[in-house]
Design a binder for these strands. Structure first.
Length: 573
RNA sequence: CGGGGCGUAGCGCAGUUUGGCUAGCGCGCCUGCCUUGGGAGCAGGAGGUCGGAGGUUCAAAUCCUCUCGCCCCGACCA
């Protein structure tokens, strides 16, 4: 039987908050002795942290195995050739950790594993009869983040579960996608997390369809919009915006006039000076798309969503134009661009279509134009959805008003299609003997990040309040004084009874004052605490305390294992 | 990469402006006594290349130059 005593446990708790940690989860992970930092964005896990990780991973394995998946292990050190084949060796940029071996051959530390697994499967899977195939791995991944932060939530080395599905056709791949979506819902629920699926952009992974599982909270790095009416939810990177309704009571078009606005280059200054609403301003941004300048129009109260823009322009490289280019294209310094008279392609967001008698730059230093009107004074090349969605917009599905929230992404599912199988020539023979590329999907869960997210959702001022399912130990037995012979023997008895009943228990056998033991137990966050002390021992009882609610119950020693099981079941639901 | 801040004992910090004796405080750690229902008390003790390198000076944690690391905000990103 495995036993654990607090006197032997390597769990150095800290009384004070380390200066480096801002987020509660980060602070508690350090204070409770779950982990220590080794470098910026790189952490060592201590025994308690490892136990939590193992529990999370066990839940993941159970659910994925249940969903017909099989676990494999893939290399972390990956050869450059595979990444060159998929085209991502260049696409990935400085975020990829790259290294050379002694023969000057190029490798990287895998930021993800699509290439390696596609290469693996293409050599061994030749027939539709071997499909569908769902393979996963739980391993360290590496991304050289510009700025690691929030402890393990944005780190450079992190533990991730990745699953890849290979299907013979689209409907098979959709079934895999749905199976994973459902498995994720169960996994996060079992971890005690409220995770909301939202529609997402596919980013560097690529593909056609994606959902992110978001844990809501102010600490979240992502912004999502959702519709309380119909349930639509999406990352703002992805969220669609509806065209504007034509304004019924639109004012008569006034005469275009040039106005002097010396030194005024921002929407904010402009609205202040002219006493107008930001919505009246036609903001004109010059971008460089694959080397060519384009103008983007959007109303002054919105921001451009560059992901949408990139998609609309169908370009690889997109960046805001430099001052020199802007001067060349608009004949004016930065801050005075406007659509009137521009000769480069103009892409307008829906939001400018209803701006009547608007204000824009005059393409001349220190001048703006008043009473600018679409189709009279300028004609966009294309009018489409280019803005970042925000609270207050109308839902694309049902037209109700959207709300917004912040969230941390703990998992994401992607429908990849043939994005990797095609260029990497990963093919099988179908029933007709035709060679076809696998239709793929990939599905990630940030395991280490999930641990932090659980703490974000389950803590109080005293420490962590682990859900039973992922707690490092379910129960801690705390004798008030371990030196006291009676207390010690009762505590030992209870501890042995629990462990032999298969309950995860730890005994605090340290020669510490009770306060110290209580504080540590609260900080580490064991769901149940059994206190063995003189107060109740005289009546043959001990005290049982729930960490999350702080409720206490006096329980006869003889019933302890039943009581513990009952309480664990109750709070474990 | 831009802006801001920090690096002095395991953790939290003072000392740096205005150079000066053996570099301090709280917590933690070790020994002993005492104590035991929410981070006790007393006594004794260990622990420091003051991030690193170079320079100025009779003298550097303190001034100068370079450098490394860390944190926060922004840009970027699963």
């Amino acid at each position: 039987m495995i036993t654990m005593r607090a006197s032997q446990l390597y769990a150095p708790t800290l009384r004070e908050v380390p200066a480096e940690a801002e987020l509660v989860s980060h602070q508690y992970m350090l204070r409770a002795g779950l982990m220590r930092k080794s470098a910026s964005g790189v952490y060592s896990y201590l025994p308690l942290g490892v136990r939590v990780l193992h529990k999370i991973m066990a839940i993941i394995r159970e659910e994925l195995d249940q969903a017909g998946a099989q676990e494999i292990m893939l290399p972390i050190v990956q050869p450059a050739e595979l990444w060159q084949e998929s085209g991502r060796w260049n696409e990935y940029g400085p975020e990829m950790f790259r290294l050379l071996d002694r023969h000057q051959r190029q490798f990287c530390l895998g930021p993800t594993h699509e290439e390696i697994i596609t290469a693996l499967v293409r050599t061994d899977v030749r027939s539709y009869k071997q499909l569908p195939l769902r393979l996963y791995q739980i391993q360290n991944k590496y991304r050289d983040e510009i700025r690691p932060r929030f402890g393990v939530i944005r780190s450079r080395e992190f533990i991730m579960k990745d699953l890849y599905s290979f299907d013979r056709d689209e409907s098979g791949a959709q079934a895999s996608y749905q199976a994973m979506y459902d498995a994720y819902t169960r996994i996060f629920a079992r971890c005690g997390l409220k995770a909301h699926p939202v529609e997402a952009d596919t980013g560097a992974i690529g593909g056609d369809q994606s959902h992110e599982f978001m844990v809501l909270g102010d600490a979240g790095e992502d912004l999502i919009v959702f519709c309380p009416h119909c349930g639509y939810a999406a990352n703002v990177e992805r969220a669609e915006c509806v065209p504007y309704d034509p304004d019924e009571e639109s004012a008569a078009l006034a005469k275009l006039e040039k106005i002097a606005t010396p030194g005024i280059t921002t929407v904010e200054e402009l609205t202040k000076r002219l006493q107008i609403e930001p919505g009246q301003v036609i903001k004109t941004m010059i971008y460089i798309a694959d080397g060519k300048p384009v103008a983007v129009l959007i109303s002054g109260n919105h921001d451009v969503n560059e992901i949408k823009l990139k998609r609309a322009l169908n370009c690889d490289q997109l960046e805001l134009a430099d001052a020199q280019t802007i001067a060349t294209v608009t004949n004016a310094p930065v801050g005075f661009a406007g659509p009137v008279g521009l000769t480069i392609p103009i892409f307008a967001d829906y939001s400018v279509t209803t701006v009547v008698n608007g204000v824009s730059g005059a393409n001349k230093k220190d001048y703006h134009l008043r009473n600018v009107n679409i189709n009279r004074d300028y004609t966009p090349t294309q009018i489409l959805d280019l803005r970042e969605a925000r609270a207050g917009e109308r839902c694309v599905r049902c037209g109700q008003i959207l709300e917004e929230a912040r969230g941390t992404e703990v998992g994401q599912v992607f429908y990849l299609g043939t994005k990797y199988s095609q260029p990497m020539k990963a093919v099988f023979l179908d029933q007709e003997g035709q060679e076809r590329p696998f239709v793929m999907g990939c599905y990630g869960i940030g395991v280490s990040r999930t641990m932090a997210a659980i703490i974000e959702q389950h803590h109080d001022e005293d420490g962590i309040r682990w859900p039973v399912s992922v707690a490092p130990y379910s129960v801690i037995v705390v004798p008030i004084s371990y030196k006291d012979e009676e207390q010690r023997s009762v505590a030992e008895h209870i501890y042995k009874t629990l462990t032999s009943a298969g309950i995860d228990a730890i005994l605090d056998d340290r020669d510490e004052r009770p306060g110290v033991k209580f504080k540590d137990a609260d900080l580490i966050g064991y769901p149940l605490r059994i206190t063995v002390g003189p107060k109740h021992l005289v009546d043959g009882n001990v005290e049982l305390r729930l960490r999350s609610s702080k409720e206490q119950f006096v329980v006869p020693i003889a019933e302890i294992d039943n009581q513990v099981s009952t309480f664990l079941n109750r709070i474990g639901e």
